[in-house]
Structures are given as C-alpha cells and as structure tokens.
Write a protein that binds this DNA or RNA. Structure first.
Lengths: 235, 235
DNA sequence: CGAGGCATTGAGTCTGATCAATTTGAGTGG
DNA sequence: CCACTCAAATTGATCAGACTCAATGCCTCG
C-alpha cells in the first residue's frame, strides 16, 4: 500500500478534495505534486500556457493584472485551502505570486480537468467556489470604481480584521480588537487601486479621528469599530 | 407526448442545456418557466432571496452593484444564451435589470441546483462559463482601477465593436467599420465607473482626433482602428 | 410642433496622483 | 549595546484629471 501523502495535509478538511473518499483521493494523489515557493516568488505568469492548477496548503498568494506599461492591480488573494489556477483556459490570465512563503499541491491542468469531469461532486464544489469568487470580484468592482479613498481603506481594514479572526464584523460587542496587517502599504494600494501615499494618509486620518491605533506599521487596533463601519459604507 | 417547448428556442444550440439529450432536456423543461420582461424592468433585486436562475433567450440584461447612498456600478452584462442568476447563494447579490425587452427561461433555484448535481455534463459547462466570467470580471477590475478615462472609453468601444460582429478586434484589415452602440452614455458611464459628461468628452476627443465618426448619438464608425487600439492600452 | 429625455459643452472645484524629502523601524554586524 | 543600512512608511507641496453644477443643443416620439 502506498503512503498517504494527504495524511498530514493542513487543509485536508477544507480543500476541494475533502469531498473525495479514500479511493478517489488516491487517484488524485497520483496527479499531485507538492511545491514550495518563497515569499516574492511567482507561481505562474500571465500569458504563458495554463499547465497547472493547485490547492494552496499554506501561505498567501496574490493574482495580479497588469497593463503593458506596468500599472498593476491585485485582482484576488488566495488563502490556505483555496483553489488556484485557471482550468479550461489555454493561457494564464493573471500572474500568481506568493506574498509569504507558501506550499502548494499542484496538478497538471489537463488530467485535473478530466478528474473533475469524472468526479461530479468535486466539480460541483469547485463550481460553488467559483460562483462565490465571481460574486466577490463583482463586489470589489463597486469598491474600485465608486468608493472614495477613505471608504476603500476602511472597508479593507474591516475585511482584514474579519479574516484575522477578530469580531470586528457586524455585531454588537464593540471592544477594541488588535491584529497584524497581512500586507504592506504597497499591497494595500495595489488591492484598492490607489497609491501608497494615499493609503498612508487615510490611515493617518483614521488614527487622528481616534478610530484606530497604529503600533508600528503592521499592527492595528480598531478602537471604534462602529465608526470604522460607518466610514466603509457597507455596500 | 408533450409539446417540445425548446423547439423554437433561439439559443438552443448555445445555451447551457445544449449538452443535454432529449430525455434529460425534457426533465429540465418540466422546471422551466418562460418569462418576458420589458426594457427597464428588474428581474431580481439585490438582497432578496435567491429563488430563480435563468437562461437568457433574447435581449440584454445588466447586473448592478450599488452603495447604500445610491452610487451604482454595472458589474456584468448578459447576452442571449448567457446564464443568469446566483445558484448556491442564499441571497441575491446584484440587481438584474433588462436594458432591452428580454425573454428568459427561468428555473426555481433549488430544483435547478439538484438538476445540476445530477447532470455533471451541464454542471461542468456552467463551471467553465463561471470561470470565464471570473476572468472577465478580474480583467475589468484592472480597467476600473487603473485605466484613464480615455483608455476606458477606447477599450469599451472596441469591446462593443467586437460584440457587434465587426472586425475591429486584432488583425490587419483596417477598413472603417460602423455599428450601433447597444447602450446610452449613462450605461457606458456605469460600466466604466465614470460620469456621463466624461464619457461624452472622451468620445468628442476621439472624434476630434479622427479616430471615430459619430452619426447621431448611437451610431459609431471606427475610422482608425489602429489608433483606437493604441489608446486602449490592450492589457 | 412641442415635450422630454439624451447628449454635448463650459466653468470651476476637489480628490487623489505625483514628485520630493524625511522619518521610522527591523534586521545586521561591529 | 549601539551604530548602520535599507526598505517601508509618513508627510508636505504641487498638479492634473475627473467630477460637479449649469446651460444649451439635439433627436425621437407622440
């Protein structure tokens, strides 16, 4: 019997493949190849052949769209257990780069597509995730096109607070929460479609208004969650 | 034997259901309900329960995201044979409104989801379309966030020219092409995340530069396709 | 022929980008 | 432990592109 490479998988119960039984998983495992990438390293380049897809095991990746003259926009972030890549596309549309050290479980695209077609349950799961990603992308279009700089930054802070596992989201308990920003000002600017300077100024403004406290460049405390939510428009 | 409601379907060979055999199609037909909507009428409202999905038979629909204070952004356009709606979502995320008179083949969401799960071939087709829509949404994020007003308008003109079936896209033959704009200046502004006035000024500028000719507000002739493409950055 | 919605054009304003100079702070090595 | 380094972040001054407000012109359809 072969060794179960999924045994110690950190996202075993959250990734796409969680819907497979042992036998099916063994088949998929046969296609899989583990890959480590260092922070800053690019996993796939826009324009090249779409040769692989992957499950993200650990770390954070960004998907970047760029113009010919070098303007960049982060169009998606991927976290552990997320699916990455562009099945059914001949060519990669967006450059995928690691923001932190990361680990991937990669599959050659064609065989993976065939596997999807033969395992409807997983295909359906990927469909659900893709639909959700589409909704998020569309919501972000509103942010990019119509929100002011202040609203954009407030919204992103709330997003990151929620993702960091704090309770700064909706409800009542309004205790201050502290967390680490998972990205630089530059990345924030790339996500929001603005410049580093403007992001910085907006953060300074929030600090001045007593809404947040900045302790070093990467640690934020949300003091007035209500005020922050009010500034974020809450589509 | 029941009457085949798909017999005269205008998108029979392009819609999702083209992958079904006669028997499967009959089952789906049992769920389907035809619906006509007039230009300007809203098919589903953001925030309400996600109760139906649909195939678009004729006409053009827009999907709109909006802020609480009324700012709007068109996040997607749907054309005949496109799939519309948000399966696997409890709540509608984006208001869908008809830009022209339109006809839909609607399905109740839950039974449609069950059908999808039981007909992997169609599920896979929807997955492929959703992946493509996601790519397009992400590409549009770059446009919204990083292109100048002039670039946005040039890009949209090329898009519309291609969709109108002209040859203004990539290749060499640079003969002037004429077509009808399928939308108002207001809709163009809503798609591009700008104002009506700015759209109009950019069109005037293109006219002044001899790149296009405007014959009435809705008819455009692209005289210098090369120049237009150059202005559109061509991500 | 008139009415009303679109579209164009103009003038002035403002937000966010750009250019430029410090400041901060995390990591290094003496 | 302290300087040193280098990238990241902040802050300031200026500028430009797009928005706003306002007026006018143009089609389309009764």
């Amino acid at each position: 019997m072969s060794i179960d490479v999924c045994a110690g998988c950190p996202v075993r119960d959250r990734a796409l493949c969680r819907c497979l039984n042992d036998q099916e998983r063994l088949v998929l495992t046969g296609l899989c190849q583990r890959r480590r990438v260092a922070a800053g390293e690019t996993v796939m380049w826009a324009g090249e052949d779409s040769r692989i897809c992957a499950n993200l095991l650990s770390g954070v990746l960004k998907a970047v769209a760029a113009t010919a003259d070098g303007r960049e926009q982060i169009v998606g972030l991927s976290y552990p257990a997320d699916f990455v890549g562009e099945p059914y596309a001949a060519e990669i549309g967006f450059t995928i780069t690691a923001l932190t050290d990361a680990e991937l479980c990669t599959f050659p695209r064609r065989p993976f597509e065939r596997f999807l077609e033969q395992h409807a349950r997983m295909g359906n799961l990927l469909l659900q995730r893709t639909l959700k990603a589409l909704s998020e992308a569309r919501a972000r279009m509103l942010t990019l096109a119509r929100l002011s700089a202040g609203e954009k930054v407030a919204e992103l802070l709330l997003d990151m607070a929620v993702r960091a596992g704090t309770s700064a989201g909706r409800p009542g308990l309004e205790e201050p929460v502290t967390f680490e920003l998972p990205m630089t000002r530059g990345h924030m600017a790339d996500v929001l479609g603005m410049t580093i300077e403007t992001v910085s100024r907006q953060l300074t403004k929030l600090k001045g208004a007593g809404v947040i406290v900045l302790s070093g460049a990467r640690t934020v405390t949300i003091v007035d969650a209500r005020g922050l939510r009010r500034r974020a428009v809450a589509a």
